[in-house]
Amino acid sequence: MTDAELIVAAGDDPRAFRELYDRWADRLLAYFYRRVLDADVAADLLAETVAVAYERRRRCRDVGKPRAAWLYGIAAKELSHGVRRQDVERRAIRRLGIEVPALDDESRRAIEAFADADEHRAALAAAPERLAAAERAAVELRVVEELGCDEIAARHACSEAAARVRVHRGLARLNTLMEATP
């Protein structure tokens, strides 16, 4: 069955959702892991994404694109929430009553291997080098040293607005670079 057929079937039969889950869970987990480089956070993000997708399975509509895009859309939103709040939302997990299993060392190793973690770490380490110097410095101060934009502005002798723009552009560019790494 295609993803689209499975999603339609899952609307009335939850077992079809399990097949969809089996088809995409590894890849979603790798998607998360490559972005957060933390297997535990990636596992939590996968669990919440799956729970949200299950709750919304009847809403999925055909927009002429592969239905996996629907799953990745939910995944991207959960990732964005997680990054913004520095915590993984677990509301859908709670609503469905999913007992999320603990992550064991074997799974951690398997996730790293599946996500080609070493290669991705190298790509992540190299990505900042491809930013403009001012943007790279602003991102490092914001992300690594956790400075506010006012402090970044003071260090770079620029306005706070300019510092914010540099951070924003730098992060957006980093995101684009990492998106290019599947």
Partner: peptide, 16 residues
């Protein structure tokens, strides 16, 4: 091949 993925799937089945 990731044991966690299988266990999470089973937990999802059970919840559903």
């Amino acid at each position: 091949e990731i044991p966690f993925v299988n266990r999470l799937g089973d937990a999802l089945d059970e919840a559903i």
